[in-house]
């Protein structure tokens, strides 16, 4: 089947890209000015521990050997220890990764769905008030400076009204309460997620709205829309069943393309709202010269983006039979 071939091809591509990233990261950390030992080994360690770590990371070996050891450590999950926390980097990563995936995927899915829906409506009312309002709204939220947007949201909803929290993703009283069930904990997380999610959503949905709108306008000129109309279908059916599924394809592509560019905003948002995710960890580890953790964060983010890309590609193939068959 064509689909299997397509997905296999994608997976191979992704593996290659990941290897390139892995290698670039290795070179960045080893060839950067400065002593690699001081970069990878915590200055506060005891002499003994430090020497053990140097051997484990292969820092005394020639560069080629170091690279092989680096790969081996990567595949066996040895990322060393965080200078800042003192814990194994793997543990920190596993702890933060789900939080980032939660915030990241929810915001992408939400903004894509809403963008597609509103873009469809806007195109349908092209040139009318609804269209102008949506288009301008999308342009404004899309171009606004993210930290500024986040601060506005904090100022209005956390400070002025006090509706939503901005500290982390859980309330201790809920999570320490042994009585609290899964639902109340989940609700607590959602409650904490409202503001960071809104920030990411507002930044992203506008682009999808604009793409969907112009893609709809192009699709409505297609011959098969004329056929649909000639068949005597209702306008709503033409819009939702014939135009929209075709018009949404470029949006899916653009979601895939924009994933890598949303890292920036994601890390900023996590930092502003103290969301305990990989992005925030990346920002703080870089500023604290916590190289082992920073390196692992880079890799994880690259991994998340690549895997999301794969998911988007599979979704695209599912939506467009020209790829599937």
């Amino acid at each position: 089947m064509e689909l299997r071939k397509y997905i296999t091809k994608r997976i191979i591509q992704i593996i290659i890209i990941f290897f390139v990233i892995l290698t670039v990261l290795f070179l960045l950390f080893r060839l950067a000015p400065g002593d690699p030992v001081s970069m990878m080994v915590d200055p506060d360690m005891t002499q003994e521990d430090a020497e053990m770590l140097i051997v484990q990371l292969g820092l005394e070996q020639p560069l080629g050997m170091q690279y092989l050891i680096y790969l081996k450590n990567f595949f066996t999950g040895h990322f060393g220890f965080s200078f800042h926390y003192g814990d194994p980097v793997v543990d920190i990563i596993w702890d933060r990764l789900p939080n980032t995936v939660l915030l990241f995927t929810t915001s992408i899915i939400l903004s894509a769905l809403v963008g597609v829906f509103l873009g469809k409506i806007a195109s349908w009312h092209k040139g009318k008030k609804v269209d102008s309002i949506m288009t301008i709204g999308a342009l404004v939220t899309h171009t606004v400076f993210l930290p500024w947007l986040a601060l506005i949201l904090i100022w209005i909803f956390a400070y002025k009204f006090g509706w939503f929290p901005i500290n982390g993703m859980i309330s201790e009283e809920v999570w320490l309460d042994p009585e609290a069930g899964f639902i109340s904990r989940a609700l607590d997380v959602m409650y904490h997620m409202v503001l960071p999610l809104s920030t990411l959503f507002l930044i992203h949905f506008g682009a999808y709205l604009l793409i969907m709108r112009s893609s709809m306008l192009e699709t409505l000129k297609e011959d098969y829309i004329l056929t649909a109309r000639a068949k005597g279908l209702e306008e709503k059916v033409i819009r939702d069943h014939h135009a929209a599924p075709n018009a949404a394809l470029p949006v899916v592509t653009s979601v895939g393309l924009s994933l890598a560019f949303s890292i920036n905003g994601g890390a900023l948002t996590e930092t502003v709202f103290t969301w305990p995710g990989i992005g925030r960890e990346l920002v703080s580890s870089v500023s604290q010269n916590d190289y082992p953790l920073a390196q692992a964060c880079f890799l994880m983010i690259a991994g998340v983006v690549l895997i999301s890309n794969l998911v988007v590609d599979v979704l695209y193939a599912y939506l467009d039979p020209r790829i599937r068959y």
């Binding site: 297609e222 011959d223 098969y224 004329l226 056929t227 649909a228 109309r229 000639a230 068949k231 005597g232 014939h242 599924p245 075709n246 939506l319 467009d320 039979p321 020209r322």
Partner: peptide, 20 residues
């Protein structure tokens, strides 16, 4: 439309919806 009078369009090659 279609029930009483149907049309075969000039650009029949693109008259079918590609995703259905």
């Amino acid at each position: 439309r279609w029930r009483e009078m149907a049309m075969i369009f000039q650009a029949a090659m693109n008259a079918l919806n590609p995703v259905q």
